[in-house]
Amino acid sequence: MIRSKQQRRLELFAYAVMIIVAVMILYPFLLLFMSSLTDEVTLSLNGYSVIPKKFSLKAYVYIWDARDTIFRAYAVTICVTIVGTLLNVLISALAAYPLSLQRLPGKSVLSFIFLFTMLFNGGMVSTYMTYTTIFHIKNTYLALLVPGLLFSPVNCIIIRTYFRTSVPEELYDAAKIDGASEWKTFFHVALPMSVPIFVTIGIFAGLAYWNDWFNGMLYVTDRTKFSIQQVLNIMVSNIQYLSQFAGTGRFVYGDVPSVSVRMAIAFVAFLPILCLYPFLQKYFRSGIALGAVKG
């Protein structure tokens, strides 16, 4: 098809728009990163800038000195994210398999139990009270793990639909003739054929765990159990939180580069996502297309 002049002009306009949008989206990230590399005195004189007058790695040196706290929070986040993501996918896939079978008695009622959670919920107060007064998860690692364990119960339904459409019925029949148990059929037929949906659901679950600061804020006050997002959350209101490591390492009180350190910790917390995003973005996109998982 021959493209009209107008079409080419429109495309040029679209390029211009997208370049402006890309700058608007990326600039704050750059500002965050460059501020973390800026000398503290320059920061207070000239403010945050993407081209600092004077570079300094002090913030990262300070993070290294405070590694007992920062790396510990990092490790908590990593462990919770890995365990939580795996459990998330396993639990939803296990539930999705029986729901995908036409012959299961009561499957529509069971599906409804999951779907209903999208329509109605107990809200913040009731959930908090349930977890603290009945299950006593306050100040345990479970507080970071359990509230997001099925971060969207509807994922069971999405995986169910995927099983139905992408695993041919004949394979189940063949497995049955071979005398495979339901567990075997699940692990050896349904699971291997549905890897893409697990990756998609897993990535959304993993992202939710990595970025979660809310459950930490609600349930965890014990500093040894802080996740990295919670350290960031605390630093917003409590600048002293940063200075607590001064005096132990290379820094004395009052010399802590507190402004750039905040930015440096934020950058460090974001770094893994930045590195993984190029490889994972197609799964984010397919997840959105499934209508699955609105943050």
């Binding site: 989206i25 945050y48 970025n211 905040r262 930015m263 974001f270 973005q281």
Partner: peptide, 22 residues
């Protein structure tokens, strides 16, 4: 373009608040 417009979606709001502060 598609990757870029989705990028802020994956950042935690705490980090966004640091950027806004910047």
């Amino acid at each position: 373009s598609q990757s870029i417009i989705l990028f802020p979606f994956v950042v935690s709001i705490v980090i966004v608040s640091y950027m806004v502060r910047g």
